[in-house]
Design a protein around this nucleic acid. Structure first.
Length: 270
DNA sequence: CGAACCACCTGACGGC
DNA sequence: TGCCGTCAGGTGGTTC
């Protein structure tokens, strides 16, 4: 569910609300949401202070006083919400009781999401983390072009590949490609170099605008305070198949790329 | 290297 | 009402 902007919004919110808090108790309501040993997980967190909150790709990273990192992947329906103590809800999977009496809750309807605590050595050997590509917002045009150019895969498949660029998902891939005027099914090596270079700027503009608007809420996404985002109101193509293009009026069409529903304007995108 | 599948799960929605 | 199929923001694995 959440892509880079949503995870970034959550990280910023938690940085404000839980930095320097201490985890007094860990409540495992659905133990299989933990990757690896549940005992280690609880032991490594209980009684520890959270020093900082960061993000890498779509991963949330909570830095602990011990140097270990609590990693959270929200996948499709995960939420990480901080608030006052209250009874657990149906989809709550893990709850962290903090020393000020507040509660940090990981909820996840579909249970694809997971949590883990890694010490630095372990983090280095975790393949998913280690193979993550660069952050788009920190990437140079030259490096982006060199990652994309010469590839014969469809351009959208490359945007979605976390090993190439970290953090882009179905929504922002479609929105960036619309702004760049490139069809999602276009082969990367057939896109003019200039257009590939411009694509990074469009992608980063979309990501930054989405962060400003607190992310996109299709159905499940909520920020760390439990509030919905508003960028879904600015979608140009995502979820708009059959509706008129906001730029030219032509009907937005739907196709499948990388097994993902993809929408584009047949007139604005080539 | 790339595409086409399936798998992991639940819930919402539309059609009949 | 209820049953059934379809679809959903992500990632990993297999096979061809």
């Amino acid at each position: 569910m959440p892509e880079l902007p949503e995870v970034e919004v959550i990280a910023r919110g938690l940085r404000q609300s839980i930095s320097n808090r201490c985890i007094s108790r860990v409540e495992l309501l659905w133990p299989t949401s933990i990757m690896g040993s549940q005992d280690d997980f609880t032991r490594r967190l209980t009684g520890r202070h959270i020093l900082d909150v960061g993000r890498r790709g779509k991963l949330l990273l909570l830095g602990l006083e011990t140097g270990a990192t609590l990693v959270v992947h929200l996948k499709m329906t995960g939420r990480l919400v901080h608030g006052p103590r209250k009874p657990a809800l149906k989809h709550d999977r893990v709850r962290f009781h903090l020393d000020d009496g507040s509660l940090l809750t990981f909820a996840d309807i579909r249970r694809f999401g997971y949590l883990a605590v890694f010490f630095p050595r372990e983090l280095e050997t975790w393949k998913f983390y280690n193979n993550l590509g660069p952050e788009p917002l920190e990437m140079t045009t030259e490096s982006f072009v060199s990652c994309i150019r010469g590839r014969c895969a469809k351009i959208k498949s490359l945007l979605l590949d976390q090993k190439i660029i970290a953090g882009v998902g179905n929504i922002y891939a479609d929105e960036a490609l619309f702004r760049a005027g490139i069809r999602p099914g276009q082969k990367a090596n057939k896109v003019p170099k200039k257009c590939v270079a411009a694509l990074l700027n469009h992608l980063n503009n979309v990501l930054e605008q989405a962060i400003q608007e607190n992310g996109s809420s299709i159905r499940d996404y909520r920020d760390s305070n439990g509030n919905a985002g508003s960028f879904q109101n600015s979608f140009q193509v995502y979820g708009r198949a059959g509706l008129p293009c906001k730029t030219c009026g032509k009907t937005i069409v739907k196709t499948v790329v990388s097994g993902r529903t993809s929408s584009y304007c047949p007139n604005c995108q080539q």
